[in-house]
Design a protein around this nucleic acid. Sequence first.
DNA 1: GCCAACGTTGGC
DNA 2: GCCAACGTTGGC
Length: 156
Amino acid sequence: MAYWLFKTEPDVFSIDDLKNRPKQVEHWDGVRNYQARNFMRDEIKLGDLVLIYHSNAKPLGVAGVAEVVKEAYPDHTQFDKSSQYYDPKSTEEKPRWYMVDVKFVEKFKNFISLENLKSHKELNDLIILRKGNRLSITPVEKKHFNYIKKIGRKSV
DNA sequence: GCCAACGTTGGC
DNA sequence: GCCAACGTTGGC
């Protein structure tokens, strides 16, 4: 059982969008970075928990938690010419990109802004807080996950 | 295999 | 809108 952080731009897809999906499940398509792809394909397992992080937005930060309900399978958008995620170099026989399915678990009562995250020295080595980090999927340590969950559930 | 040029991400 | 920090591409 492992923990992860997925970035998403809430203008495109937010925690509320996930919550409002049928069965509250959605496939996490559009990842076009090899490191992130490798995490999904090789390491992200059924039942893993995911922090949903809203990037490029206001507010900016961790919005809630989701759970992995389906392990890696080919991302269909890579074969779709009309998709912005279309990849002409990928084939059905040898797909280049993968995705997982996640299910809504909870939306934090207390949205945790990036500023808030940074103010906790316990979270100093969280990957997302490293300067210049652009990876859209990153592993999160159990202690960090639990700490963040605690802040998120605290009422303000 | 190197690396310059270019494109993208994402906080500010 | 700016720009630092990356990742990718493609010529050599």
